[in-house]
């Protein structure tokens, strides 16, 4: 076979594989949206869930998912950023950093159910945080930290060494070079990593079942004092998220419209992640423009 034919064959095969991936994705998305969209209504999005009766909504779960996401990101992002900057910009390659990298690698392949059980034993039981948003956020931090650190480190790696040399050669300190030259240039790529991990966190169920709990007590959305037990902001209350809700309905839901609620929730979950991606991308572009005036 001559090389031209080989080339054509390879391209054809690659197209085929790519097409297959897209097809699977579209089929999945289409199925979820087609079965879920008809269930959506303002009532469904805002009403609290009902345990035995028809007509419950996912308002509380939706809020819990976002609140938990924000809290988990607020804890894990600064830590991951610091770790990544240390690992890539400051640390020399030696056995300490190799050990850290290996640990990160192992941690990132930890099954989320194990993270959840660890969170249950450590945060819920040992630290007496109970089934709470805070326990959930800590568990998600453990779950999220390795991948986020890796992805930020990779973002820093994409910035040329010449940029660092250029900064240093101007008499900038190492810290100034990192914060004023490297980070602004890396913002879009870091943001992509944050979005990807946010999507994972948003859809995570196993790590939360044993930490944030499976109950969603009704919230009083007029009460924003985080110390009141019915306040949405109270980090010590148990909080079932959307993903956990889907899991729970499908495994032990006894309401008559369980199937419809499950489909609707899945659609909401997907749409929320989609919206989140678009918003984050828009913000990222604006941020990059402001930081670099490019």
């Amino acid at each position: 076979m001559d090389t031209k034919k080989q080339n054509k064959l390879a391209i054809g095969a690659l197209y085929g594989i790519a097409g297959l991936v897209v097809l699977i994705l579209l089929a999945l998305l289409g199925y979820i949206l087609a079965s879920g969209l008809p269930q959506l209504s303002w009532h469904f999005l805002t009403a609290p869930a009902k345990a035995f009766l028809k007509g419950g909504g996912v308002g509380v779960q939706l809020f819990n998912s976002f609140y938990l996401l924000i809290l988990a990101m607020a804890i894990s992002f600064p830590i991951a950023l610091g770790a990544a900057i240390y690992l890539y910009e400051y640390a020399r390659d030696n056995w300490v950093t190799t050990t850290i990298r290996t640990a990160i690698e192992i941690l990132s392949s930890l099954p989320s159910v194990v993270v959840g059980l660890f969170g249950f034993l450590f945060f819920v039981v040992k630290l007496r945080l109970g089934f709470s948003i805070l326990s959930g956020a800590f568990a998600l931090t453990f779950f999220n930290l390795p991948l986020l650190t890796r992805s930020i480190e990779d973002s820093l790696r994409t910035i040329d060494l010449e940029q660092r040399e250029g900064g240093l050669a101007l008499g900038l300190s190492r810290w100034e070079t990192v914060t004023r030259v490297i980070l602004p240039a890396a913002v879009p790529s870091i943001l992509t990593g944050v979005i990807l991990s946010a999507g994972r966190v948003f859809g995570e169920a196993a790590a939360l079942i044993y930490t944030a709990g499976q109950s969603a007590p009704a919230l009083n959305f007029a009460d924003w004092n985080p110390f009141n037990i019915s306040s949405p902001l109270n980090p010590m209350r148990p909080a079932e998220t959307l993903a956990v809700h889907i899991w729970k309905i499908n495994s032990e839901g006894i309401m008559p419209d369980a199937k419809a609620i499950s489909s609707g929730s899945s659609a909401v979950l997907i749409i929320a992640i989609l919206l989140f991606n678009f918003a984050a991308r828009y913000v990222g572009k604006r941020l990059y423009k402001r930081l670099t005036s490019a």
């Binding site: 010449e162 250029g166 050669a169 101007l170 602004p184």
Partner: peptide, 26 residues
Amino acid sequence: IRKEIGMVFQQPNPFPFSIYDNVIYG
């Protein structure tokens, strides 16, 4: 030291900022 002894490299390495910001960055 590097404020007194500046350096220009083989590959042009402007920062991903405006021309103005590049010049006044230091």
